[in-house]
Design a binder for these strands. Structure first.
Lengths: 322, 322
DNA sequence: CCCTCACGTGGCAACGATGCCACACCGGAA
DNA sequence: TTCCGGTGTGGCATCGTTGCCACGTGAGGG
């Protein structure tokens, strides 16, 4: 029996007599034959692997995103090579190199630097930018609508009567912070409330630093009545600092956040926040990438941008100012 | 220039004139040449991929574990193919199949069924069982010391004066619950305190179910003065239920947990718990596996079991009973 | 009776990298 | 002059799979 015949019998492509087919299949099952995926990839110039590059698996936002991606990929027969880049551009570039070596079918990335995207693009790898978009030129993107989300929260606070709302936002270029800042401003503009520049506090993506920045903001502007933390890590730092100061929420200060992670419904008061439907976002990333791979519009189609609509979750941490 | 020469020039193995070597390297850099990892794996019968199989990426315990594994693997030049099996034996077996097809160099798994381990073993794949050990026959293991950890917590509660300590434990066979139950019993035995069977409440690994079970336990045994939740998910359910009932911690009831995840220090009172050093545990898994792969004792060495020493973190949720 | 066609099957090359072997060249020694 | 060893280089097979092509066989129709 020739290898060709076996291949046809197992794959079902091309002619193969029914009797032979079943005989081959039985034999394969008996010896626990499992086709070599590497050889297959080599021959077919196609791989069942997708590179997934995220910033921090220990942050529940990224963990949920990765879980969604994994689910989406697995149900389509792909698997996920997961790399944590810690938001470090060098690590990101190294991972891109590794992905290229494996000849992954595509890459899903929460991008840090534009070089990594360029590299992937010039290697002809399909890319989906997740959560944030560094460039519209390189591939598709699945994003939260940060501006709308931040606007929802800010409007909620304005409608409660708050007029001096501190914003805690991360300073990194690549983050989705810019959109959130824009939403914060837009809501103020729509309500006709001016924004003091020193209500906006930039900090690094790190709960401890966020706590310190929160403290500084409250010291400098004791008149703020509400605080809006730009992501779940900043919210953690801010919440801890408020606890440390013994501030009673929401009586003395309202707190709202971005990203609905589980601790926010466990603490008292529970935190008002914006859900990004992170798991779904991950699934969408997988779907967008797989659609690209199935080649319906492999090269031709213009980059597609999917926006996940955020949802406001009002909880106990926000109320009318005193 | 022949392929052989190029291979030698790039890899540095075998003869290659210095001039040729630099010329080849320059050319390779110029055209962004990246060797094909699949072809290499095929030829060398070795792969840079490690299969990692965990139960639930959205559970911070597993996320931390995976992050540790990833870090350990990446720093050694390997990468992680991550599959979520949701604690489902069929999914686990499918993933094992997929890993076999890729000819992964090894597998790290929080095991669900013994069949999966058997399959991997008979295929000659090196396995590390993480967090729990289903069988001592198949490969190495990196485990928490559940008995000691549970004993620490229980002794702490006993020393505070508690005599009726409810235990919330998951009922799955494969979990590390058995060890924790043993530790709970051991601490009681050491203190000469008898354990009522109905203080031990079995529940499924699901916060909502854990909440319901907590409620039932408190209804049936209103005399319990302390509750010990056997893992972070059960703790979440228990904590939510206690909040719902408006019980004041630790005055009316003490609560302790297993697995130190971040929300436990954010809620008030913060939860007394046992840290398993989960990230380190993940790194250890990687190290144990890589040691096996480096072949110092590839086949011969007896299965190695690494035990990570747990640490008690006393916080505000536990106090003397009234 | 021969041609055609449908149905099966095997041979062969190729994917890309690598290691073994053979071979070529040169200097120095017998 | 011949032989030897050190130094480089190229040829070739191989890993496992797959697709193309060629070929063989048997039935049915002209």
């Amino acid at each position: 029996m020739s290898p060709s015949t076996v291949s046809r019998a197992l794959s079902g492509k091309g002619y193969a007599a029914a009797e032979v087919r079943s005989r081959v299949r039985a034999a394969a099952a008996r010896i626990d034959y499992i086709p070599d995926a590497n050889a297959r990839s080599l021959r077919n110039r196609s791989s069942p692997s997708i590179g997934v590059l995220i910033s921090d698996l220990r942050n529940p936002f990224y963990a949920d995103l990765a879980a969604g991606v994994e689910q989406g990929l697995r149900s389509a027969g792909y698997h996920m090579i997961l790399v944590n880049d810690d938001g470090d551009a060098d690590e990101e570039l190294l991972a891109v190199q590794a992905f290229a070596a494996i000849r992954v079918a595509g890459v899903i990335v929460t991008p840090v630097s534009i070089q990594a995207l360029q590299r992937l693009h010039q290697q002809g790898v399909h890319v989906v930018q997740a959560d944030r978009q560094l460039s519209e030129r390189y591939g598709d993107a699945v994003l939260g609508d940060n501006e709308t989300g931040a606007e929802l929260v800010t409007r909620h606070l304005l409608e409660l009567g708050h007029r001096r709302i501190g914003l805690l936002i991360d300073e990194t270029k690549w983050s989705s912070g810019a959109g959130r800042l824009a939403g914060y401003r837009a809501a103020h503009a729509a309500a006709g409330v001016p924004v003091d520049a020193d209500l906006i506090a930039f900090t690094s993506v790190d709960a401890v630093a966020a706590g310190a920045t929160t403290g500084k903001l409250l010291d400098e502007r004791p008149d703020v009545t509400a605080l809006f933390a730009g992501n779940n890590v900043l919210a953690e730092g801010a919440f801890a600092e408020l606890q440390r100061r013994g501030l009673r929420l929401p009586e003395q200060l309202s707190l709202a956040a971005y990203d609905d992670v589980s601790w926010m419904s466990l603490v008292r008061p529970a935190i008002t926040t914006v859900s990004q439907h992170t798991f779904d976002m991950g699934q969408q990333c997988a779907e967008v990438l797989l659609a690209r791979l199935s080649g319906d519009h492999a090269k031709d189609g213009a980059p597609q941008v999917v926006r996940i609509k955020p949802a406001l979750r009002v909880r106990g941490s926000t109320a009318h100012p005193r």
